[in-house]
Amino acid sequence: MSKISNRFWFQLHGWFSLPIWLIFCFVCLTGTISVISHELTWLTNPAARASNPQDLPEKPTAELISVVQQAYPTANVSIALSFEPYLVNAIVFNDSDKPVAVAYVNQYTGEIQEINLGITFINFMRSLHGWLLFPWQHNYSVGYYLVCAMAIVMLGALVTGLLVYKNFWRTFTQPKLRLSQGKKTLLSDLHKLAGVWSIWFLMLMSLTGLWYLVQAIMWHADIDIEPHPPTVTVEQLPKFAEQTATMPISATDAFEIAEQRFPNFKSTYAMLPEHNRDTYKLYGDGDFIFFDQYSLGVMVNPWTGEIEDERNPEKMAALETLTNVVNPLHYGTIGGIWTKIIWFIFGVLLTGMSITGFLMWGTRTVKAARKPTVELDHNQQTFIQQETH
Rank of each mutant, 00 (worst) to 15 (best):
S5L: 11
F10L: 02
H13K: 11
G14F: 12
F16V: 08
W21G: 11
F26R: 00
T30H: 11
T30C: 11
S37V: 02
E39M: 06
A50E: 07
P53G: 02
D55R: 04
T61K: 01
T61E: 06
E63N: 03
L64R: 13
L64V: 03
V68W: 07
P73F: 09
T74F: 04
S78N: 11
S78M: 10
A80L: 04
S82V: 05
V88R: 06
N94Y: 03
D95S: 10
T109G: 04
E114C: 01
F121E: 09
I122T: 07
S127R: 10
G130Y: 14
W131Q: 11
P135C: 12
H138G: 06
Y140W: 13
Y140L: 10
L146W: 06
L146I: 12
V153F: 15
G156H: 05
A157E: 07
L163I: 15
F172Y: 15
F172W: 13
T173A: 11
P175N: 08
S188Y: 09
S188K: 07
G195I: 06
V196D: 11
W197L: 08
I199K: 08
L204S: 12
G209A: 01
Y212F: 15
L213D: 06
W219Y: 08
H220A: 01
D222P: 00
I225T: 13
A245I: 08
M247I: 02
A254P: 02
E256G: 00
E256N: 07
Y269K: 15
P273E: 08
L282Q: 09
F288K: 11
Y294T: 12
W303R: 04
G305E: 03
E308C: 00
E310S: 11
E314V: 03
T323D: 13
N327F: 15
W343S: 04
F344I: 05
L350S: 14
T351Q: 05
T351M: 06
G352S: 14
G352T: 07
F358H: 04
L359M: 15
T365N: 09
K367S: 12
A368E: 11
P372G: 01
T373K: 15
E387W: 04
